[in-house]
Amino acid sequence: MTEPAIQIEGLRKVYRGLGGRIAALDGLDLTVPTGGIHGFLGPNGAGKTTTLRLLLGLTRPNSGTMHMLGQPLPDRLLDVIDNVGALIEGPLFSRSISGRKNLQLLARSMGRPVKVVDTALEQVGLGKDAKRSFRSMTTAQQQRLGIASALVKDAALVLLDEPTDSLDPADTDNFRTILRELNDRGTTVLLSSHDLAEVQQLCTTVSIIGDGKLLAEGKVEDLVGERAARTAVRVDSPDQALSLLEKALYDVHRDGDMLVVQGHERPEEITKILAQAGLFVSELSAIRPNLHDYYLELTGHEPREDPREEVAP
């Protein structure tokens, strides 16, 4: 089995401030498989950014173990840092220096040829605009520059902290294309995002954290997929249909004119049972709880309870 790109166990980070000690991470476990795009979700203050900062050695853990690209951190950070691209807490650059110069200095500081900067800037569509000082760039351009900085390295792993914030839809689409291309080339991506639809669309695996701890982790389809899905059924005699399905040991309940059956593995079985009793289905569809609902449930918020709105054809 391939070694995970990131393996974290029992990670704890406490910040001391005037208000006392605050545990940003309280025994976090995290596994990011190699090769995919891994979503990293959690409410504000859950510890996502702290986790990424710890991985990059920008802050030091109080306890716990971290491995990145097979190397223990922070002891062997130097062995892997050249292969880890990152955009943490938004694009942070010297404000009076041009975008291109900022990236050139970063590339030179790690011994990379300056020409990789132009390639990265082209990739994010920031050719001419990169000559402007970082201060005078638009927010979207600054964000693109931040993404370009993550591409400057010959990265096997890219850590992105809410990278599509302040990007317009076109830029977001462009960014997703870049991310997929990166991933196709074998780069593992850890994507921290508040955009749950984006994570569901892009990511193969996901970790959800809250209060500095892991709440759930796994493949997206396992977390919100078929096992959690339900089937909405519309028939002319719902009460009779309900009785039939219960006799067939289905977990079913009535919801208005509809019947809601737990599971959506074999919908044809449902139509068959009802048809044999002369009840013909006028509508049958899957109700798949999406990542949004799953996330809200996990983090202590109730998702909206209106299955019709969530019905997928």
Partner: peptide
């Protein structure tokens, strides 16, 4: 002080952690 104020020091150290 500039890199602390702008936050760009964290970007610099993400590229050169020595």
């Amino acid at each position: 002080g500039g890199p602390y104020a702008s936050g760009s020091l964290s970007t610099q150290l993400a590229f050169q952690p020595r």
